[in-house]
Design a protein around this nucleic acid. Structure first.
Lengths: 189, 189
DNA sequence: ATGTTTCGGTACTGGTCAGTACCGAAAGTA
DNA sequence: TACTTTCGGTACTGACCAGTACCGAAACAT
């Protein structure tokens, strides 16, 4: 692929467009996220958007796919510390993610591509990180070997998402610690 | 209030309109739920709708408010039986409820009235029923007195809602039993 | 210099939809 | 019978918006 002639695309434009889409999805929902509003928020022309994506649906898919929950696997030295750190991570980082996801939930019901991407965002890295944490402590003998790893690893992000999307507010740190102490730890030992 | 003169309103029309709104919200989302489509599904004229509600927003609020999760408090004779029955109740009955709620989640972020009603539907009767079950078994001595009642009572419906709304499918009975055995019961004893 | 592509911006088109105003017929009351 | 309201249905309006087609200017390669 030879280097294209002509003025090169400004990578910053693409990033600011996707960010603007995410902002607008949270603030105004899918229907309220018009191409014109995106262009205004991203400080670009509408043509810059249509040059990159053919339809609004593709644009939204790209914006959702650009969400990435960093899947850090904490290592605090204690089981409780790791679990709290991992859970806290969702409650904070998922704030924006959950907002975007909540805004497209009704579209998810009818768009296979969107559903796959959304499920990959929530159900991928977070679950993998929690699974890694729990399995590590199984190896270390603090969690029983037949603990319901998949159940817990799926439950925490799902509950966090459900709560955030319904109440439209991030989980309090107290609530996260409470949940780990009262629900997650008893289920694992 | 004297009896109105003129042809009385057919109560069946109101019910079929609200049912049609719920159906369309699930199938087509908020934007796809047009007044024309509602009238067609409810087999009535558009005027019959506007005679009862002034705007589409009011209509949707009414349709969501008409959702009611029966708050039965099961009494199977065992703690585990009650918990499974209560949880199973959400997983089934909340199927339709969760679908409607998921479809208006993005509107919930911007409409206070809608948010209040939605929160009352999910966070009201189901939580109250679970709370009643748990507290009954505290009295009977099977659940420790300082168990995290509110946490568990809120967690189960939230998780069920999160799962249904994300995966667009009711929880399997196996999964419900699994969750009660592995998560709820350990947290209560 | 010449050509090519991107830049922000504007004008236009075609379709959709909420909300309003009617209509004649039906179903009640006085 | 006369009156009132609801019934399903239709026609119209005004706004909004996705998508297309441009524009002159800027930024690169050859």
């Amino acid at each position: 692929m030879a280097k294209q002639a002509g003025r090169p695309r400004d990578p910053g434009v693409e990033a600011s467009i996707l960010g603007a889409v995410q902002d607008l999805l949270i603030e105004s929902g899918y229907a309220g996220t018009t191409i014109g509003a995106v262009a205004q928020r991203a400080r670009c022309g509408r043509s810059a958007i249509y040059r990159r994506w053919e339809t609004k649906a593709e644009l939204v898919v790209a914006a959702v796919g650009a969400l990435q929950v960093a899947a850090e696997v904490p290592d605090t030295g204690t089981l409780r510390g790791d679990l709290v750190a991992a859970a806290m991570h969702f409650a904070r980082a998922d704030d924006r993610t959950a907002g975007v996801l909540a805004s497209i939930l009704s579209e998810i019901g009818r768009d296979d591509e969107l559903r796959d991407i959304a499920y990959r965002v929530v159900g991928g890295p977070p679950v993998a990180a929690l699974t890694a944490v729990i399995e590590r402590w199984i190896d270390r003998g603090e969690v029983r070997a037949d603990a319901p790893v998949a159940l817990i690893a799926g439950l925490v992000p799902t509950a966090a998402f459900g709560s955030v999307s319904l109440r439209r507010r991030a989980l309090e740190p107290d609530a996260v610690v409470h949940m780990v102490d009262e629900v997650v730890l008893p289920a694992l030992r």
